[in-house]
Write a protein that binds this DNA or RNA. Sequence first.
DNA 1: CGTAATCTTGAGGCTCGTCAAAACAAGTGG
DNA 2: CCACTTGTTTTGACGAGCCTCAAGATTACG
Lengths: 238, 238
Amino acid sequence: MRVLQTTQAQRLETIGRLRYFEHWNAQQVAAIAATANILAVDKGHELVTRGKPLNSLYLVITGEFRFFVPIPGGQARSLGLVGEGRSFGEACVELAINCPYSGVATTNSHVLAIEGTAFKHEVHKSTRLLSQLLALVANRLMSVMNDLETCAQHSSLQRVACYLGQFQPPGDASSYAVPIEGRKKDIATRIGLTPETFSRVLTTLEQNGTLSSKGKVITVLDAARLRQIYLNGCEPGY
Amino acid sequence: MRVLQTTQAQRLETIGRLRYFEHWNAQQVAAIAATANILAVDKGHELVTRGKPLNSLYLVITGEFRFFVPIPGGQARSLGLVGEGRSFGEACVELAINCPYSGVATTNSHVLAIEGTAFKHEVHKSTRLLSQLLALVANRLMSVMNDLETCAQHSSLQRVACYLGQFQPPGDASSYAVPIEGRKKDIATRIGLTPETFSRVLTTLEQNGTLSSKGKVITVLDAARLRQIYLNGCEPGY
DNA sequence: CGTAATCTTGAGGCTCGTCAAAACAAGTGG
DNA sequence: CCACTTGTTTTGACGAGCCTCAAGATTACG
C-alpha cells in the first residue's frame, strides 16, 4: 500500500466524481479534501484489521474490498464486499472505536482515505449530511440483522433457502436469478456454513429441481418449494 | 395492551423525566408529545412483530422487553433486553421499513409510543438530535456485530468463552462477575446454542475451575484460561 | 406452600465439519 | 495458442459435536 502524492485540486476532482458527496457543498468538500489521501492498495493487502483503531473512513474509487471477522483457528466469517463508489468505516469513525472487522483488497484498488475527525467535524454541522449518514448506518444495521437471521436457521438447507430467498423480486415470480459476487466460499461462511456443505446443499437443491447452479450463475426455479424448505426445515423428501 | 388516556401535560411530564430527551428543547418535546401515547403492555404481549411495519418508536417507561428473531420450527434467536429508560425502533422508523425482530414484554410494562413521522420530522431539523440518534444507531450496529462474531465461533466452548470475555473489565484482573439479565435460555440462543448445550458448557468450565456458576451469578475465576479456550478451541484437556 | 417456569442432567441419533484429493476455472508467461 | 501455475469448487469418507427428546432438580412467584 502506498500513499499517492496528490494536489488539493486532484483530490477535489476525485471527490467531485463520487456520488457519495453529491449533497456536499463546495466548502464542505474542500474541508475534507484537505485532509484526504488517495491510497493504492495491492490485491490481498489488509487495509483495516479487526481490533485496530480506524482513524479514517474509506471510499473505494476503483477495485473492491472483502470484509470478514477473523476467527481463531478456523474459517473467517465473511461480511460482504464493498465495490467502487461505496464506503466503509463510518460507524467506527463516528464512535471512535476499534474496527470490528478486517478488510482486504480483492483486486489492486484505489481508495480515498478521509481523516475521521475532519469528516465528523463537517458532517456534524449539517442536518443534510447527518441524515445521509444516519440512513447509511441504519441500512448497514439492517443488513447485519438480516445476516444474523440467516445464520440463525437450524439446518444448512434452511440457511441456504433463507439466503436465496432474499433475492426474490417483488411479485410472485417463481423463477429468479441470484447474484453471486465474489467467491462461493464467502457466501458459505457468511451464512455460517463451510464451503463444502454449501456446495453439497446446492447440488441437493439442484437435483430436486429447486434451482439450477452452473458455475457463478444460480437461478431459483421453484420459489414456492424454496419457501417450503425454509419453513418446514427437514421435511422428509428433501 | 391498552392506550392510556393522557393529557398533553401528562405526556410532557413523562417525557421530561426521560434522559433520552435531555438534549431536546421545549418546542421539540412539545411537538412529539402531541403525537405520543402511553401504552400499558401486559407481560407476554408481543408489541412489535418481525416483518410488520413499525410506525412508532418506543421508549420503555417501566418494565422490560425481550427481543428476538423468530425461526420457523425452532428456538427463536434472542437479541437482548431493553429496560427502563431505553428505546427501540429508531432504525426502522428512520428507514420506514418492516421490523426485523419481534419484541414481547417480560413484565407488565408502560411504554411511550412516539409517532414515527413526527419524530423524524423533529430530529431531522436539529444537528444535535441527529448526532444523538446517529450515535445510538451506530452503537446498535456494533452490538449486533459483536453478537455475530460470538456466534461465528466454531465450538460451543469457544462461543461461551467469547461471550463471557466481553464482560472482562479493563486491566488484567483474572476474576470478574458476568451480569446475567433475563434467562439463561436467552443467552444460549443469542450465541447460537440450545439451553442444554449452554448449561453443559458452564458445568464443564466450572469443573475445571475457569468459572463459578451459582444460579444467576456467573463469576469468571481464570480469565487467562478463558482466553486460551477462546483462542485454542478444542485443545485437549478442556 | 403449591404451581409454573426455568435450569440441569442423561442418552442417542444425525447433521455438519474435517481432512484429503480430484475436477474445474482463471490468469500468466512462453 | 497452449502448457503451467494458482486458486476455487466439488466430491467422498469419516468422526465429533451438537441438537433432540425426555425426565428430574431447582428456582421463582403467587
